[in-house]
Amino acid sequence: MIIKLTDRIYFMPHNVETDRPILGYIKGDQYSLMVDAGNSKKHVDEFMDGISKLGLPYPNFVAITHSHWDHTYGLFSVNAVSIACKKTNEYLNEMSSWEWTDEAMDERLKNGEDIEFCDTMIRKEYYNRKEICVKTADIVFDEKLSLDLGNISCELLKLDSSHAEDCVVAYVPKEKILFIGDIISEDFHHGEPVYYKDKLYSLIKTFKELDFETALFGHMEPFAKKDLISWLENLDVTVI
């Protein structure tokens, strides 16, 4: 199911069964942009089928919000120019050499390269793990990239986040929409889930400065701006 937010902004909701995040779509007069590439070919196919049924064109570009598997492992099956920040591409390049045997996956859990939740969800999404193919991006940027899609622009901004070192948001000023991936989540990869105070405060400050009305988070329902900021300012979790 694809949900229409505006005449130019659409998204497919998250699915907790195999940790599928939302996938976004921005329609310009000349080009269209997909936000995040999903966790598998099946995820991508479901999204493409949904936009096709709405009469929307296949996306020309796909932008990645960060490197975690659920946002990137569908990239190889998206027939569009892919875009990621430099750090994300480094992680993708590293993961492209991973093996997907039980032994290799167990070793990554032991050495901290992966976490149990992701390991479990990958096994659920991929009955045949030989289907996993990690692809790097076609276009790589450092901190910011602006895309003119035709009467609508999208700004890709790398921001501070506790969740990962490579988090990017896709900001659509004209529509006052912000695709935020998982940027508001904790760091789950170093023991107890935590937020880092400096990064959290920097993110809240940036959100306050950006002129948006709705934020689309990867694994929850969309937030109104004031609700998102209030949620972040009143977190009942460990902040260090």
Score class of each variant (00 low, 15 high):
50 G>P: 01
65 T>K: 12
35 V>P: 04
50 G>D: 07
59 P>L: 05
67 S>G: 03
63 A>H: 09
35 V>Q: 04
59 P>E: 04
38 G>Y: 02
56 L>D: 06
61 F>E: 00
47 F>N: 08
65 T>N: 15
37 A>Y: 10
31 Y>S: 13
57 P>I: 13
47 F>W: 07
64 I>N: 03
31 Y>K: 15
64 I>V: 13
59 P>C: 10
30 Q>V: 09
66 H>F: 02
30 Q>E: 15
62 V>H: 14
39 N>F: 05
65 T>M: 04
49 D>M: 11
45 D>A: 10
58 Y>V: 06
48 M>C: 11
36 D>A: 06
34 M>S: 08
57 P>M: 10
53 K>R: 14
33 L>P: 00
39 N>K: 12
70 D>E: 08
38 G>N: 06
30 Q>Y: 01
69 W>E: 04
59 P>D: 09
67 S>L: 00
42 K>R: 11
47 F>C: 10
68 H>D: 07
40 S>E: 01
59 P>T: 07
32 S>F: 09
60 N>L: 02
33 L>Y: 01
63 A>I: 01
65 T>P: 14
41 K>C: 09
66 H>R: 03
50 G>N: 12
51 I>R: 05
69 W>M: 07
49 D>H: 14
54 L>T: 08
63 A>W: 06
31 Y>G: 02
56 L>C: 10
40 S>A: 04
58 Y>S: 08
64 I>P: 13
44 V>Q: 05
30 Q>H: 01
38 G>C: 04
46 E>I: 11
45 D>S: 12
46 E>S: 14
41 K>S: 13
32 S>Y: 07
45 D>G: 00
62 V>R: 11
36 D>H: 08
30 Q>W: 00
39 N>E: 07
55 G>N: 14
61 F>T: 00
65 T>W: 04
50 G>C: 08
31 Y>F: 15
59 P>V: 06
43 H>D: 15
57 P>T: 15
44 V>T: 09
46 E>R: 14
31 Y>L: 11
36 D>K: 07
50 G>V: 05
55 G>Q: 06
